[in-house]
Each structure stands twice: as C-alpha cells, then as structure tokens.
Design a binder for these strands. Structure first.
Lengths: 352, 352
DNA sequence: GTGAAAGCGCTAACAA
DNA sequence: TTGTTAGCGCTTTCAC
C-alpha cells in the first residue's frame, strides 16, 4: 500500500494538518517544520491521492474534452494544442469522443458534469442546446466551445462564413462563372454557415445560385458528410451534369476535396484545367494534393480554448468571451493559373 | 449543490446503505424497496459522485493512455480503437501525451500510478524500463504495452522485423540490388527492429550491408525521426551519393517516405523509375502518394490493448500475454513494375 | 504555529 | 432485508 498522509505525519512527528499545510505551501507553517515534513515525504515517496484530495477540496483538477471523432487531422492538431496547454497548467485531460451512431453529446455532458465533476469542459465542433448551456451556467461549470457557437457561452470559432466567401470569391476572381459547392450535412453548423458565405460571394458577383450546383455530402450514413467518400460521391453527382457541369468547386473540407479530386480523375478529367478546386481546413493532405484551401488555425484554437477555460476555473473570471479566428487563403495548384487560361470560359458569360 | 446519497435516502425513507445497494444492483434488496429508491433517484436527478465512489471502492474507473504525440495518423487510428473499447466498458480515459522535449515517460507513469491511481495503463509506442515494469507488477496495476515490448509485461506489437524483412525483400524481388534504408532514431525500438529485418533480407540475398545506405532520420532534434522533415533530409543525404545512390529505399515509416519522395522530386528524379520507395504503416497519406507500404492494423491494436487491459482489471486474469500482429504488404505504384524495367540495373551486380 | 476533529460522498462490514 | 457505522485519504476549521 502506498503511504498516506498519516504515515508521513507519524514519521515527521507532526499532525496530519501540518503535513497538509506543507503540501499546499501554506504560509502558516514554520520553515523548520516544513523541512521536516518534506524530508519524511521524500523518504516515504509519498504522493497525495488525487481522488481524496478532490473529494475534500471539491475540485478534480481534470478537464473533459469532448470531440466527434471522425474529424481526423483537424482534431489531431487541435488536440495537440489542447494537450500542450492542459499539461502546462497541471490539469489532467479526460477525453470523450462520440460515435454519432450510438452516443449522444448530452450523455457525455451529464457524465462529465454530474458523475466525474470535472472542473471544466471543452466542447469541440459539437452543438449544444439551450437547455444544457443553461445547465452549465447554473452549475457554474466553466465550458468553452471550440469550432462551435452558443450565444451564452464562451466560443472560439473560425470565420466560416468569411472563409467560404473568400474561397468562392477566389474562384470567381480566377474567371470562373460556373462555381459549385460541395458541403457537409446541414445539421453541422459550419456546413450551414459556409453555405451562406458561398451564396454571398455568388450574389455579389451577380451569379444566381443554382440548386443543382450544391452537392450535399450525405453518402455515408450516420456521419456528417465531412469525409472522403462523401466528397467523392458528391463530386460524382456534379459530374453527371455533363457539359453543364461546373468549372470550379468550393468544397467545405479538404478531406471531401480529396475524394472529389479522385472522382474528377476517374472521370478522365483534370484538376485544375477542367475543374478547379478549393477546400477548407488545410490538413496535411492538402499540401500533397496541391489543393488550395482556407487554413484554420487548429493548434491555436485548441490551445486558446484551454487557456480560456483554465482562466475561468482558476481566476473565476466572468464575462462573455467570443473569439473568431480568420481563415487564411492558401493558394496551390488546384485552382489553376489566375484568369488568363480561363478566358475560354468567358463565352459562357453571355448565357448567365 | 447536486443531490447526495443522503438526500435520496431521506426522500425514499430508507438508509443510505439501502440506496447504495440499489445503486450497485445488490441482490440483498427487496424489489419493492429498490423501486422506491430508484424513484427518488429519478426525482432528484441523482448521480453518484465518481470520486467519492472511487475513494471508497479503491477504484477509479479510469484508465490512462500515454502516447508520444507526434505519431500522427498512426496514433489517431489507434486511439479510435482505444476509445471505442473503453467507452463500451464504461471506463473513462485519461490521456497523456508527452512532448519529448520536456516530458519524461517516467513522470507520467508516477502520476497516473500514484496520484491518479488509475485502474490500468496503456502505454503506446513507448519503451519502459525494467524498474518501472517491476513497479507495475509490484503495485498490481495492470499495464498493456502497445507497439512496444517488455518481457515481463503484456505486449501487443506488430511484427516489425518481419515487416521490414518483407518490405526489403519485395524491393529485392523487383530486381533492385542497391537497396538503402531510411530509419528513425535507434532509441526507438521499432526503428531498431526494422533495421534488423532490413539487414536480414539483404544478407539472405547475399547483398552486403553498406553504412552509407543507412540514413538515420535525425534532422529534427528532440523527436524520434519519424516525421516528414527527417525523411526529407535523410533522402537528401542518400542522393548526395550521386551515381552510387540506391535504386530503391525502404523507409521505416510512411510519413518519412513522404518527405523522401519530395526530396527525390526536387532533385529532378522520379519515383519509381529512378528510385523505388516502400514505406511502413499505411497511413491515409500513403494511398494518395501511391506509396507501397507495410500496413499495421492500428485500430485493432488499440482495441485489443484495451480489451486485454480491462480483462486484467475486471477479471484479475494473470499470465503472460504477448500478441504480435503481422503486417501486410500493400503494393502501390511507388515500387514500380515488377522486374522487367529493372533489368538495366543488372550490370551493377558485377561489382557487388 | 500546530494538533485534533469534522467533514467531502460514497462502500462495506456489522448488527439488528 | 435493512439501518447504522466505520473507514477511504485528504482539507479545513477550530481550539490551544
């Protein structure tokens, strides 16, 4: 059995209260006594039991991170940022990832909040209902949303609408008129908002929105459509338009764009000559595929999320906190050369 | 404040012992009484406090997973398997990832073992010293090593040596004679063992091992060399050999191979015509790069690791457990066509 | 400044 | 079968 605070007290010839004071750097203890205690601790290789401490202090020193797992590289980068920050603040991380097929985010929230009594929750890319938002506030349990938004809670987001707008605009500025979009399931908030940005760019350029130019990735059931297969099938549908097919596509995630690229190649077409492509995220893969994309600062978002969360926990800071990161256009080959080579498409303009 | 077991007892008109019995499905309780208690629990939205329960039961219901973070996609896949299994057994997962620049695996072990008192530890791709191996045994804390090995502990590994052997042999069978290897830092156990497999294949084919054909990835300091930059620089060194450069390279991880590929292209050379490449892992990227590789069953390893760990915890099963997964050759374009086109290299054989 | 004692919210052994 | 009580290992009053 590991040593307890009683063992230490006995060995140092003091009471357990004194040991506790030495442990917690209380000023209410003589340096001499403290030294004695520290020596006993050393000799017994004593380590305070986190659960016992947590029970007495009503603090677990754990934060929960809830993620939807299929987010792949995006999640990995984000988690790296999270981990770095968590570790440096001496908290431990309880990771929950939900499988949409069987888990509900609500169950995880209940579990972390009521059972585990974590000190704070970081919710990644997951929507939260008003009911649960209020619950967190009522229980005074700090929560930070990352890549998700709720008016009453701290949220760190990326400017999805702006990003989608800029991506579409980039395509437009290259001379494209027939610009389609491949999006994830609209239950996903980023998917919704990116669609808005796409439409806005179209509108500003006087190009009417076409239903058949919006391909929602819904191939793989139970997921949100942000995956390769879904991208592949969405592109395939666009390709079925034949001659009326788009000359450029804004895809709402790089991973879908990867699938789309494959579909284009299999159809004997070429990126960017036949169809220009721009994605969203800037995952590792994008660099290899020479895919233009809107970069999200994933690592930074994770890090800042934890920073803010711990600030709430330790310093009980209140107040609204909304941060929105801008996306950055990363221009690669998949969009083709600017303008010049697209002039041959200009005759289409007449009919538009 | 959330309801406690006392609140429930009062409301149901019973003692706290009875509530506890209802909670833990004890047979020592009348169905009628149990129903009464369950009703009170429902009404109060009571949830047992995990820490209090843990303290009394001497069981945390948490398992720790310790990973080196830079393992990228390999780790992500593995963690998916881990998560799935952990969740289905109603344990929670405490994630620790260590940054080699500042963390020591020993500190994490101490922390999880002594402070957090987790019920079990899953150590991924990380070596463990004899001292700590004994510590786990002595403390009777179950531990399972995944992608790592220790004679006294449960280990789930992949047949690294065999995999490396087969990869090298594949290159050899294609007609290559000048086969080099790019490896990670030799402190990494897989790196060591894969080197052995490479040498064995060479030897069996009567090809002498050449020092200048072994490029250790050591570019990025503080890491183990299993990353893109390191692969790039290792390949660059091989390329400096000029005409004496290898015609095929076995790279000890796909991510390094990706870097190597880039170096080859930048040198104006072509894969597989000038240099054939085979990697290890079969990460997502490999498919895109059309990189031949030895596939590791990552998801399965994670899942099995947890399965075994929980078996140890719940059923107190003892005994040695060593599982070794075989790797699978995934043949893609990066190795080029079999034999025929390599015949022009045969004249080199004379000097060998 | 320090020791003793009372909780924190549970489980489990012990009576009744 | 059920209620009572004594811990689990700590923090935190409260006296001294």
């Amino acid at each position: 059995m590991p040593a307890t605070i009683y063992d230490v007290a006995k060995r140092a010839g003091v009471g357990i209260g004194t040991v506790s004071r030495a442990l917690n750097d209380s000023p209410q203890i003589l340096p001499h006594t403290k030294a004695k205690v520290l020596k006993a601790i050393e000799e017994l290789d004593y380590q305070p039991h986190a659960m016992a401490r947590g029970l007495a202090r009503k603090k677990t020193n754990m934060i929960a991170v809830i993620v939807p797992f299929f987010t792949g590289y995006f999640f990995l980068e984000l988690l790296r940022g999270v981990q770095q920050e968590v570790t440096s603040h001496d908290y431990d991380l309880l990771l929950y990832s939900l499988d949409h097929r069987k888990d509900k985010v609500e169950d995880f929230i209940e579990k972390t909040l009521q059972e585990r009594r974590v000190d704070g929750v970081l919710l990644i890319s997951l929507p939260i209902s008003d009911y649960y938002a209020s619950l967190f506030i009522q229980k005074k349990c700090p929560i930070v949303l990352v890549d998700s938004y709720h008016p009453k809670l701290d949220s760190i987001t990326v400017k999805n609408r702006e990003g989608a707008y800029l991506a579409t605009k980039h395509l437009l500025s290259l001379g494209h008129e027939k610009v389609a979009m491949i999006d994830g399931q609209l239950v996903s908030s980023p998917a919704q908002v990116r669609l808005l940005g796409y439409k806005q760019a179209l509108e500003e350029n006087g190009i009417p929105f076409r239903d058949d130019y919006l391909a929602i990735s819904d191939f793989v059931s139970g997921q949100d459509g942000f995956n390769r297969e879904a991208g592949y099938h969405a592109m395939a549908r666009l390709l079925e338009l034949g001659e009326g097919r788009p000359t450029a596509v804004f895809v709402s995630s790089d991973i879908q764009a990867a699938g789309a690229m494959l579909a284009i190649q299999e159809a004997g077409l070429n990126v960017p000559d036949d169809i220009a492509l721009i994605g969203f995220d800037d995952i590792e893969l994008a660099e290899y595929l020479e895919l233009s994309t809107m970069r999200q600062p994933m690592f930074e978002m994770g890090k800042l999320g934890v920073e803010r969360l711990i600030d709430r926990i330790d310093n009980k800071k209140a107040g609204d906190y909304k941060i929105s990161f801008s996306t950055q256009l990363i221009s690669r080959k998949s969009c083709g050369p600017p303008c010049a080579s697209k002039q041959n498409n200009t005759h289409e303009t007449v009919s538009a």
